[in-house]
């Protein structure tokens, strides 16, 4: 049986790990490669590295970091942040990334999803969606959640699937950084709109939040950052907890 994945996310700025709280108040939390190795040891199923400054700063440092990560770790990892064209994706995949995530660039130019799927295969194209409720509707936001768009979230994920995305990484901005639980209802609804693997992100604070997510939605994976980085939740204990509630996990 396919296991539910636990995915620590490492936000990267200038080669260091950071985690924004509600996308602001950036705190430093360590060396990415060391953290990555620690997570592999703890039993993380996959890792995500987001270059949160990539849109404005040079990307070369990040590509080099991806190369170092690929040498050191033996589980899959996704990289994202600031990808605007096929050349960016080629460089990151060649450096050893397994998957890349795109967000703002795909909203501005949805054809990018088709191009990337055709060139590199759907299996490595993750569509990241930052969403929040505007006038009672779930809407898509871009540029790290700062800019609202006219795209409706449920329509956008469906469109992305048809265009060739291979996975959805869904972040509820209202939940992100709050540690009050995942957006279970939103995740459930997105899961009903696509048949792609679905990663839920934003709001993890306790082990029970992960259990609620997997019981109340058909998410395939849960992503979190600060609760893992600061040791508030230990991955082996989290997995044992989920296992006790008959949620399939890799132990």
């Amino acid at each position: 049986m396919l296991k539910k994945r636990i995915i620590p996310c490492l936000d990267i700025k200038n080669g260091q790990t950071v985690k924004g709280v509600n996308f602001e108040n950036i705190r430093y939390a360590g060396d990415p490669v060391e953290l990555a190795k620690e997570y592999v040891k703890q039993g993380a199923d996959e890792l995500v590295f987001l270059d949160i400054t990539a849109t404005i700063e040079k990307r070369k440092t990040f590509v080099e970091l991806v190369g170092r990560i690929s040498k050191e770790i033996n589980i899959p990892f996704t990289v994202g942040g600031g990808i605007t064209m096929a050349e960016d994706v080629g460089a990151l995949l060649n450096a050893g990334a397994d998957k890349i995530s795109i967000n703002s660039a795909a909203v501005k130019n949805p054809g990018l999803i088709n191009d990337l799927a055709k060139n590199f295969g759907s299996q490595c194209i993750v569509l990241a969606v930052d969403t929040n409720i505007v006038s009672g509707q779930w809407m898509v936001f871009v540029n790290g959640g700062r800019i609202p768009t006219l795209k409706k979230t449920f329509e956008w994920v469906k469109e992305a699937e048809q265009r060739g995305a291979g996975e959805i990484l869904l972040t509820s901005m209202a939940h992100d950084g709050t540690k009050k639980g995942f957006a279970n209802e939103l995740t459930k609804m997105v899961g009903q709109n696509v048949s792609l693997p679905l990663i839920a992100s934003g709001g993890a604070g306790t082990e029970n939040h992960f259990r609620e997510l997997f019981e109340k939605s058909n998410a395939d994976a849960a992503l979190a950052a600060s609760v893992f980085h600061f040791g508030e939740i230990k991955i082996p204990l989290l997995k044992n907890y989920l296992f006790q509630f008959n949620i399939p996990v890799r132990i």
């Binding site: 049986m1 994945r5 996959e46 291979g166 048949s195």
Partner: peptide, 13 residues
């Protein structure tokens, strides 16, 4: 076949 999430992605036994 339809009915399963595709791609089959993740850890399986």
């Amino acid at each position: 076949p339809p009915g399963q999430k595709i791609p089959h992605m993740g850890w399986n036994t």
